[in-house]
């Protein structure tokens, strides 16, 4: 009897998910079509403007990617969301201001070579500083909590976020600090912001280097092993503590580089800039937390959304809506694809 009703009902039940699946797909397609239409109209109305907005989008995306990768690297290896990461990035911007502005006095009036090496020095300085700061945080505050309940290290990172932010306020004051326009804003005849192009061009080799480290080096192998099974990695002779430190260092280095590029692009910063980390974290979740390509993709998407929303003129909601839009998309993604765009339930982390 029971089997009878079971088989009788089965076709109906089987069709249901297919219908909702179709509905989902239809809605998704409709939304995407609307988006494409909106972009197309904007493009037709002002191709030049569209082009520079696109570039700004990629620039934002590149900056977010450098921060988002830090969240995803650390999450990938110890499943912790490091809420202090945005503030490490903020310190990268501060160190950049100190080196490029205060120490070297770069303001765009120097020759190309001087500017180039000055910016390089600032970037290396910020990368080294954040590359040391981040693993130090792990060593001092997080390592001893590795076997504690999940909430303990999470709350700790929140506390550290405040400490880093207050320390920056102490050293750099409560107001915006910054540098002059170190990079030119136009190249040749193009109406394109050259500094944005430079940000993108500087990000690409950093991402390639990261990919190389994770995929090809011994430390990268250790990272992947720890991410997949920490105890098994120990049994293979991997020094897990060192591997985690290394991961935090990588995350810090990228945040430091991001800090320099941010200052070049935006020219000002403040002690509370770490809040930008929230958007970058969203990017990491959007792409699939723990997945490096996903973090980059998520960051590009959010960067583009922000630029389109704030820069296009035909029916763009405008700047005050950016955060709402980004988080609405995040919520939709979490509802319909909780693992993020590229994360599979068993995602190839790190």
């Amino acid at each position: 009897m029971a089997t009878d009703t079971h088989t009788a009902r089965r076709p109906v039940l089987a069709v249901l998910p297919r219908v909702t699946g179709l509905l989902n797909r239809a809605v998704t397609i409709a939304l995407l079509a609307l988006l494409v239409f909106w972009l197309a109209v904007n493009f037709v109305q002002g191709p030049g403007q569209f082009g520079s907005v696109l570039l700004i989008g990629f620039t934002n995306g590149a900056l977010y990617a450098l921060i988002a990768l830090g969240y995803t690297l650390v999450y990938g290896i110890i499943e912790l969301i490091n809420f202090a990461h945005g503030d490490v990035f903020m310190w990268g911007t501060m160190i950049t201001v100190s080196i490029a502005g205060t120490r070297l006095g770069l303001d765009g009036s120097q020759s190309g070579i001087v500017t180039f090496f000055g910016v390089l020095a600032a970037m290396v300085g910020a990368m080294v500083f954040c590359g040391i700061l981040n693993p130090t945080i792990e060593r001092v505050a997080l390592r001893r909590l590795r076997n504690a309940p999940r909430l303990a290290p999470l709350i700790t990172t929140l506390g550290i976020s405040y400490i880093l932010s207050n320390a920056a306020q102490f050293f750099y004051g409560p107001n915006y600090t910054g540098v002059g326009a170190i990079l030119p804003s136009n190249i040749l005849f193009l109406d394109w912001p050259a500094k944005s192009l430079i940000v993108i061009l500087a990000t690409i080799p950093l991402l390639l280097a990261l990919t190389y480290v994770v995929r090809r080096t011994r430390q990268g192998k250790a990272m992947r092993a720890v991410a997949q099974d920490m105890d098994a990695a120990r049994m293979m002779g991997v020094d897990v503590d060192r591997t985690i430190s290394f991961t935090f260092a990588l995350a810090g280095i990228l945040a430091g580089a991001g800090g320099t590029l941010y200052v070049l692009e935006i020219t000002t910063t403040r002690y509370d800039l770490g809040q930008i980390g929230l958007l970058a974290f969203t990017a990491a979740v959007l792409g699939g937390i723990g997945n490096l390509t996903g973090a980059t993709l998520g960051a590009l998407i959010i960067g583009l959304i922000q630029a389109f929303n704030e820069g296009l003129s035909w029916h763009a909601p405008g700047e005050q809506w950016t955060t709402s839009i980004v988080f609405s998309i995040l919520i939709l993604i979490l509802v319909f694809r909780p693992q993020g765009l590229l994360g599979q339930p068993e995602a190839d982390r790190a």
Binding site: K221, A225, Q228, D231, A232, A233, M235, M236, E346
Partner: peptide
């Protein structure tokens, strides 16, 4: 000292070859 633990504990998202390489990590 090497250990083939209870439950095997392979690295699930690495190939057989990469798992063997991990065994030679040091």
């Amino acid at each position: 000292i090497a250990h083939s633990p209870e439950g095997r504990r392979l690295f699930p998202r690495m190939s057989v070859r990469e798992n063997l390489e991990m065994g030679a990590f040091n």
